[in-house]
C-alpha cells in the first residue's frame, strides 16, 4: 500500500491506495474520505470521491488523477455545485449533459402504433429476436454518434450480451421482425425508462412514440403516476419525443472527463 501524508488543508490526512481502484483518506485514524475508480462495461473508467471536507476531496482527487491514465470520467448532479467545482478544479471538463425527465403516465392515451406495427408487451418478447435487435441498434449507434453518448450502462454484460433481463423489454414488431425496443426497470416506486431504440431504417415513423405510449399506459393501469427517463441534451429526437408527451425536466447530470495530458 502506498500512503501519502498531506499536511496542508484542514483536516490534514493520510491517503492510502488500499486496492488498485480504491483510495482511503484517514484523519488521525478516523476515516475522512474515500476515492474509487471503476471500469464500466464499455471500458471507460469512472471516478468518485466521498469526503466530509473539500480539502480532503481535493487531496484524494489529486492522488487519483496523478496515478491513473487518461481518459478518466465522472458524473455529477449539476445542482451539486461544490462537487462540480471540485472536479473542474481538479482538471476535468464537462463532456455531455443528460436531462432527467419526470414522465406523467396520465399522458398515455389510447396506444396506436404506426400502421403495420404491433407492440409485444414486456415479458412476452422472444429472447432470440430481441437480442438480435439489440445487437443491430447498438451497432448502428456505435457507427454514428457512439454508444458513449447514450445513457450509461453500469451492469456487466457477459460475453457482450447487453440484454441483461429480457423480461424488462417491450418490442415493436413489423412484418414479423423486431424493429424497436423499450426497457423499463422498476426497482422502487419510480420506474425508469432506461432505453428506447428503433432500427435506423424504421425511424421517423412514430414507432418509438408508440413504444413509450404503450409503456406509460401499462404503468398507468398499474396505478403508477410517473416514470423517469434520462435524455442526452444533444439528442433532439428523444427530447422532442418526451417533451411532446408532457414530460418535464426535473434535474440534470453532467459527465466530466479528463482528456489525454
Amino acid at each position: 500500500m502506498d500512503t501519502v501524508r498531506f499536511t496542508e488543508g484542514e483536516p490534514a490526512v493520510s491517503i492510502t491506495r488500499v486496492e488498485p481502484g480504491l483510495w482511503q483518506a484517514s484523519d488521525d485514524g478516523r476515516p475522512a474520505g474515500r476515492g474509487e475508480a471503476t471500469t464500466r462495461p464499455d471500458g471507460r473508467v469512472f471516478l468518485s470521491v466521498d469526503a466530509w471536507h473539500r480539502s480532503v476531496f481535493d487531496q484524494l482527487a489529486r492522488e487519483m488523477l496523478a496515478t491513473l491514465p487518461d481518459p478518466l470520467h465522472t458524473v455529477v448532479d449539476e445542482t451539486d455545485r461544490e462537487l462540480l467545482d471540485g472536479w473542474q478544479q481538479a482538471g476535468l471538463t464537462i463532456r455531455r449533459r443528460e436531462w432527467e425527465y419526470v414522465v406523467p403516465t396520465r399522458a398515455a392515451g389510447p396506444v396506436v402504433p404506426p400502421p403495420g406495427v404491433a407492440i409485444v408487451p414486456a415479458g412476452s418478447a422472444e429472447e432470440g429476436p430481441l437480442r438480435e435487435l439489440d445487437r443491430v441498434v447498438r451497432a448502428e449507434v456505435e457507427a454514428t454518434v457512439g454508444w458513449s453518448e447514450m445513457p450509461a450502462e453500469v451492469l456487466p454484460h457477459p460475453a457482450g450480451d447487453t440484454v441483461v433481463d429480457p423480461s424488462k423489454y417491450a418490442v415493436a414488431v413489423e412484418d414479423g421482425e423486431y424493429v424497436g425496443l423499450i426497457r423499463v426497470v422498476q426497482v422502487t416506486r419510480l420506474p425508469r425508462i432506461g432505453l428506447v431504440a428503433v432500427r435506423a431504417d424504421r425511424q421517423r415513423r412514430g414507432i418509438a412514440r408508440g413504444l413509450v405510449m404503450h409503456t406509460l399506459d401499462v404503468l398507468h393501469r398499474a396505478g403508477i403516476k410517473t416514470a423517469s427517463a434520462e435524455v442526452n441534451e444533444a439528442n433532439a429526437a428523444a427530447t422532442a419525443l418526451f417533451e411532446g408527451i408532457g414530460a418535464r425536466r426535473a434535474n440534470s447530470t453532467v459527465e466530466l472527463m479528463r482528456h489525454g495530458r
Binding site: 474515500r34 466521498d50 422502487t188 434520462e230
Partner: peptide
C-alpha cells in the same frame, strides 16, 4: 455517495 451517483441510482 459516489457509488450511487456513478450507478445512476435515483
Amino acid at each position: 455517495s459516489g457509488k450511487i451517483r456513478k450507478n445512476f441510482i435515483k
